[in-house]
Design a binder for these strands. Structure first.
Lengths: 200, 200
DNA sequence: TTTATTTTATGAGCGCGCTCATTTTACCGC
DNA sequence: GCGGTAAAATGAGCGCGCTCATAAAATAAA
């Protein structure tokens, strides 16, 4: 029973869309994998042939949003300095993630949790690594030598801090999140400039 | 069946000690509430008369460690500046938390997760609020006007970043964590000084 | 076409955290 | 002592995420 790649992808996407609807309606925790499977027209067990666990379904949705954000970001005008460009990057991500905002708690448990450092389970790492690679490339473009692992660690802490604040930011246009992001990046890039010359 | 407060406390502590042993032996996830209850000499259901959920048992253990750390910190010599004093505070916490280091993943899911901001479920908030209150009092003691909610948000992001890095820091004396803490606090306090005079 | 082989789908079943109707226990006034 | 009462303990049971032995389906070999 060999099946074409497109058929598999179609099923995967059916699962994701079924999950999207149920997550929106009931929330991440309350929506059950049995419901999702039923809505996607497959058996419960089959769902786990396509995704290793429930959280990775949400991870897939988030991954698509992040990919979209990167695409949007890639073709927009280059900002003047590092700080502004990082701001634009994260702002683009938030814009794409907006429909998933209320589901972010489901993502923080493993995919975006700061602990995602060293366990290397797959999706969680790829989201982190993918983002940090862009950050690194932006920094390089602005003439910074190389961002140390420690600096990336600090950046990631601030980044997840912004995301988690945003997840429960109910202000109309998320101005509070943008203020937090602005200040975080301001502090970070000032610190980066300050330690650029020092050894390590 | 009225029971004295000390009897309740004794049972609570028996549960915590049983859980401590089983968590250490099997890890947080693998140790089951049935095992813990059996080891503590009570029925499964009874356990949930003493703790609302499994994670709060670990939360209790962590809470005791944090309280101990605060006690140690309170009676040590005052550091010269804000940065050093915050460093001493967190270092004291890490020292007390050391036996729980491998269990930290169980704590990050809700108790220490950056999301703990606005949900206000109890233990998670009290750990956060308790720590931030000490930070605030230290800052005041060093003549800083008042730490804005935004600044506290940034501090908490950095703090949880340090804790989560530490949770999987296998270097012998956690030097890498201490370096991260040092740099994080250096950046934060420099930023604090820089924005102290500016309007918000 | 028939048989063998491999891939995919299936859903009963497992152990989990946790609940709740019921039973047991400790204390009161008499 | 002895019911009455309220607090606390109990464990069968629930629904969950997830597994895995089995069935079904698709291809390859004959």
């Amino acid at each position: 029973m060999r099946i074409t790649a497109q058929e598999k992808d179609a099923t995967r996407q059916r699962i994701v869309e079924a999950a999207r609807a149920l997550f929106r309606q009931h929330g991440f925790e309350a929506a059950t994998t049995r419901q999702i499977a039923r809505a996607a027209g497959i058996a419960t067990g089959t769902l786990f042939n396509y995704f290793p666990n429930k959280e990775d379904i949400l991870g897939q949705m988030a991954g698509q949003a992040f990919a979209q954000a990167r695409a949007v970001f890639a073709k927009q005008v280059v900002a003047a300095d590092l700080e502004e460009e990082l701001f634009a990057l994260v702002a683009a991500e938030l814009r794409q993630l907006k429909p998933l905002r209320k589901l972010m708690d489901g993502l923080f448990e493993t995919v975006l949790c700061p602990l995602a450092t060293a366990r290397g389970d797959g999706a969680e790492v790829s989201l982190r690594v993918a983002h940090l690679e862009i950050v690194d490339s932006i920094a390089r473009k602005h003439g910074l030598p190389e961002i140390s692992p420690l600096a990336l660690q600090i950046y990631w802490a601030l980044y997840t801090g912004v995301l988690s604040f945003w997840a429960s930011d109910t202000s109309s246009k998320q101005e509070e999140t943008l203020a937090l992001l602005d200040q975080s990046l301001h502090m970070f890039s000032a610190w980066l400039r300050g330690t650029a010359g020092t050894p390590q």
